[in-house]
Design a protein around this nucleic acid. Structure first.
Lengths: 205, 205
DNA sequence: AATATAATTGAACAGTGTTTAATTACAAAA
DNA sequence: TTTTGTAATTAAACACTGTTCAATTATATT
């Protein structure tokens, strides 16, 4: 009687195969330049098959995008060892920046590209749990800092957004290559230096 | 004998027509979803014609992208009226953010999309004069602030990058719609509030 | 062995960017 | 005015894209 279960398992396996193939192609050639036919060729199925597992190309994109947040969150948990909330906040920033620079294509998928949130918008905007969880984690850490007297006269939500924006700004300018011309001589250190300057400012507040 | 000049003028006019049509379509439908055939239809020429004026779609994109910087710089010059350098710095931030939110598609072209700098990379990375000029303007303003004793213990270049990243981060998260879910209740004020918090921090340094 | 169901396919549709051979327009020379 | 040469314009073609769908194949149940 376990035949339905086996079929379910096989279906899940092929779904996973599609995602693996799509991921490797997306990260290698970019989302736009990867076609459904490319993915189909790699897993040796016909293009039409893919549409039995995913509604459209965006749904594949979105499924991968979720995995990225799990990766990021997994790296974040180590900060729980740090007793001081401001140290935790800074560690979060470091982890965020390192994740982005080590996985620029995944970061691009998660925070820069427009497709995934068009998908979210279509599915009634209730699905970006991953992004929400990450932001809430930042907010609660900042809350603890403020409870200990840091950042007085500031408002938690706006300041959280500002901090997120700062690290996002640095890595996204770097990933989308706006530093290459403007900061040609220190391309590869500017994000680290910017982050240090940021931590310096946080310490002084 | 002015026939060559007239022909030159007519050629330039058609080039301008293509750019105007492309701009209106890019801003209305997005770059990706605007086809060469769409542009050709709008100016009532054949698709092939366009390739006598522009090497490819990217070259059209890049030509428009240059115009955006001229717009932004034109708005920036008004800050020269402000005598205090820190006020000038903050005014630059406001102008930058307002420009981005009022012309999100143009901002997208200039600072978020990947295409224009791929073009720059191909043309040996020496062409992003526009972006460079804008950044130099920020640096010189920050220099003046530091000369008057602000931001002590910071390094000019890294801090310039950090400031640019902060405003870029806020507007790009907004433009690429990462606030909608995470900050649903104050979507339309969060960038302004974030900017105020930023100015508040700058004042305290 | 026949039937029902689910998975898979290939062909088709309407679109894309780009190239090119052929055509048209038009100023200069005969 | 007619011919010639050149530059602008075009239609057609190429190789692709995402997506749909009728037809086929495979497989489990009766």
């Amino acid at each position: 009687m376990g035949v339905a279960e086996r079929k379910e398992r096989e279906k899940e396996e092929l779904r996973e195969q599609i995602l693996t193939a799509a991921k490797s192609l997306f990260l290698k050639k970019g989302v736009e330049k990867t076609s459904i036919r490319n993915i189909a060729d790699l897993i040796e199925y016909s293009p039409g098959s893919i549409y039995h597992y995913f509604k459209d190309k965006d749904e594949i994109f979105y499924a991968l995008h979720q995995g990225g947040f799990q990766q990021l969150m997994a790296k974040m948990v180590v900060i729980n060892d740090l007793p001081h909330p401001l140290e935790r906040l800074k560690a979060m920033g470091s982890i965020y920046v390192h994740f982005a620079l080590e996985n620029p294509d995944m970061y691009d998928l998660m925070f820069i590209k427009e497709a995934p949130l068009d998908h979210v918008a279509r599915t009634k905007a209730l699905e970006w749990n991953e992004g929400e969880a990450t932001f809430k984690f930042l907010r609660s850490t900042l809350r603890e800092c403020m409870d200990q007297g840091y950042f007085q006269g500031q408002e938690e939500e706006a300041l959280s957004f500002l901090i997120w924006s700062t690290v996002h700004g640095m890595v996204s300018l770097s990933i989308r290559r706006r530093c290459e011309v403007v900061l040609a001589d220190r391309q590869d250190t500017i994000v680290k230096d910017g982050l240090d300057a940021f931590f310096n400012i946080l310490d002084r507040l």
